[in-house]
């Protein structure tokens, strides 16, 4: 591992100034992904700026009925928070579907959003990877392709975003509060993460030195009936092949409101606007759920190893919405 300076600044503004002025600096929070990448040689910062003790570690009520989650709230605390369990169960469920108990105790809300892809070639410094080393090529295009994206990928990168939490946040329409060298701003999720295009090294729209200080959840009554469904190769402790975060409100058999996001399909947590539009105002039936899912996947491009993701996404969305409809009927 490359030697680095470790700094624990006095406050978020000091942290931002330190990182913004130093191209070799990186923020450290829980460290569960970054420390691993430093061991692997995937990341080699020359300075770590520890922000874990500087950012909020509480979940607070917002005046409009939403919640503000401090960026340092551990994933485990967020999943267990009573208000999240009751009002945004999809977020609790997504967090609990990810990683292990030990990792969730260390990983933070802010850090989770900056997890990097688990594409095997990204994590293997002996192979070409445009995300790790721009311009070297993409090994996943012709290589092991089971995990590859089917929506929004480019010739430069077919990696998927690994976070479960971010999929729930995309469905809920959360907002990241960002402190940067130019001051504070709000970045919506989805919108924080970006498709690879010709710059797969950039996972998010944020610049060097930008720091997420909190994540706001909107007041969203439909989220009280929401769920997260994750399909993976093992029953636990594995990344998603396909996952669905969904919230559904059915009135007299008609979809009054619905929020859907997919994980495992793209370089971003994929908000399924097309499927939502297809469903709203229509019947809450199995056929409608499948039709909406097929509409969302209409532009999917698959390779040798990942064609299964398309029917899997259709089935997973249909079963998740069916479950929420049954819950509603109780």
């Amino acid at each position: 591992m490359r030697p680095f300076d470790y700094t624990r600044p006095d406050g978020p503004a000091d942290a931002v100034a330190l990182v913004a002025d130093d191209p070799g600096a990186a923020y450290l929070a829980g460290g569960t992904n970054l420390v691993d990448h430093m061991k692997l040689g995937v990341a080699s910062p020359t300075r770590l700026v520890d922000v874990r003790g500087l950012l909020g570690n509480r979940v607070e009520e917002l005046p409009g009925g939403g919640l503000r989650i401090g960026a340092s709230v551990p994933n485990s605390d967020l999943a267990a928070h009573p208000a999240v369990r009751r009002r945004y169960p999809v977020l609790s469920a997504a967090l609990l579907a990810g990683a292990s108990g030990q990792l969730r105790n260390a990983a933070t809300t802010g850090g989770n959003l900056f997890q990097r892809t688990r594409c095997p070639y990204f994590q293997d410094t002996t192979t070409p990877c445009n995300k790790r080393e721009p311009g070297t090529g993409c090994s996943a295009l012709e290589g092991h392709g089971r995990d590859n994206a089917v929506l929004g990928a480019s010739d430069h990168c077919v990696a998927t975003h690994p976070s479960d939490m971010a999929v729930a946040l995309a469905a809920l329409g959360a907002e990241a509060r960002v402190l940067g060298p130019g001051g504070e701003r709000v970045v919506p999720i989805p919108g924080l993460h970006r498709l690879p295009g010709s710059e797969p090294e950039r996972d998010t729209v944020l610049g060097h030195g930008d720091l997420i200080t909190a994540v706001d959840l909107p007041h969203l009554p439909v989220a009280a009936r929401s769920a997260y469904r994750k399909v993976r190769d093992r029953a636990s402790y594995a990344f998603a092949l396909v996952s669905v975060a969904a919230a559904l409100d059915v009135v007299d058999g008609t979809v009054a409101d619905v929020r859907i996001a997919f994980g495992g399909l793209a370089h971003v947590p994929w908000r399924a606007h097309r499927a939502e539009e297809a469903l709203i105002g229509g019947p809450a039936t199995e056929e409608a759920f499948r039709e909406a899912a097929r509409a969302e996947l209409a532009d999917a491009r698959t390779g040798r190893d990942n064609a299964f993701k398309v029917p899997m996404a259709v089935n997973t969305l249909a079963s998740t919405l069916r479950g929420l409809t049954a819950e509603e009927a109780r």
Binding site: G31, T32, V35, D36, L48, Q102, N105, A106
Partner: peptide, 13 residues
């Protein structure tokens, strides 16, 4: 008091 993975924690932090 909480279980964590000591291999992914930096001592200095």
């Amino acid at each position: 008091g909480r279980r964590i993975l000591s291999c992914l924690a930096l001592a200095v932090a």
